[in-house]
């Protein structure tokens, strides 16, 4: 009976679906983007790349704002994922060293290993670096190898120039892979520098995967804390430009040597104008990463 049933068509494929009548389009409800109406917010937005004064569409962000946000987040993710090539130090005239970290994943998970030199690197520092210098500068990847490769070399050279102008002797240029800030303590201690200065890629923010930070410490030694350090962040072309930063870092180093201290005990009031007071800051424009109509 089953065979007869099949023969009569029970297992035939289903007939084609009848054509659907055209579905009327839903009533169009277009919200036009509304820019921020407050004059204060509009003014403030011109002085920052932060997400202020971006307007809204109904109760939501405008599409181009959302896309821009996602693109900026992608930039930050890519910067964290980037790795400093092993030959980068030698190619750019640095002495290459590495922390005790062996892989990028370990670098992200084990900050403690990123603060100490590996045994071979320690040998390298002892054998190849000048001792008893005024300022030991270290360029490092930190959390953004992109920033290190982009402006690390330029910032280093600018700082060396600025230090020489102030009569400070700088040490052998060092580039460190998988480095955290506190690595400067061990290196500075090994070369017996008065001041150690590490220039490293900072934790990426929205749209800024290329920012460098500089951490400066007087009398570097293992066991220093963050209270012993001074730092400048946001060193990139849309923030503090490298030449300005180099001037400030050199001033900071000479003040440390003069006052024989750093960190919270350093008197910044005596640094003067060069330390970057509350001067005028030119309006900033947010870098657009996605195509889209300008908000009207």
């Amino acid at each position: 009976m089953d065979a007869l049933r099949d023969e009569l068509g029970s297992s035939d494929p289903l007939p084609p679906v009848p054509a659907m009548p055209p579905i009327p389009a839903p009533p169009a409800r277009v919200y036009s983007p509304r820019p921020e109406r407050s004059a204060f917010a509009a003014q403030a937005a011109h002085h920052t790349t932060a997400l202020v004064g971006i307007g809204h569409v109904g109760t939501r962000y405008a599409t181009d704002v959302v896309l821009q946000f996602q693109a900026e987040l992608a930039v930050a993710h890519a910067a964290v994922g980037a790795e400093l090539p092993e030959g980068w130090a030698a190619d750019n005239g640095f002495v290459g060293v590495c922390s005790r970290v062996t892989s990028h994943r370990e670098f992200l998970l084990r900050p403690d290993l990123g603060r100490r030199l590996s045994d071979t690197s320690l040998e390298t520092v002892r054998s190849r670096c000048d001792k008893n210098v005024d300022v030991q500068i270290i360029v490092a990847d930190g959390l953004s190898a992109v920033a290190c490769m982009q402006t690390g070399k330029a910032l280093h050279d600018a700082v060396v120039r600025a230090c020489s102008a102030r009569g400070l002797k700088t040490g052998t240029p060092i580039a460190a892979r998988f480095a955290r800030v506190w690595l400067e303590d061990e290196i500075g201690q090994e070369v017996n520098a008065k001041v150690a200065m590490i220039l490293l890629g900072e934790r990426p923010g929205l749209g800024t995967g290329d920012g460098l930070s500089a951490y400066v410490v007087y009398a570097p030694k293992l066991g220093n804390t963050d209270g012993d350090r001074n730092m400048i962040s946001n060193i990139h072309l849309r923030g503090i430009i490298p030449d300005d930063a180099a001037e400030r870092l050199a001033a900071l180093a000479s003040a440390m040597i003069e006052q024989r201290s750093s960190g919270v005990t350093l008197d910044l009031g005596r640094l003067g104008e060069v330390s970057g007071g509350r001067g005028y800051r030119a309006p900033q424009v947010r870098q657009r990463l996605v195509a889209g109509g300008e908000p009207t």
Partner: peptide, 8 residues
């Protein structure tokens, strides 16, 4: 379906 069972 043709020849479907009709269970008593």
């Amino acid at each position: 379906m043709i020849l479907e069972r009709i269970i008593p």
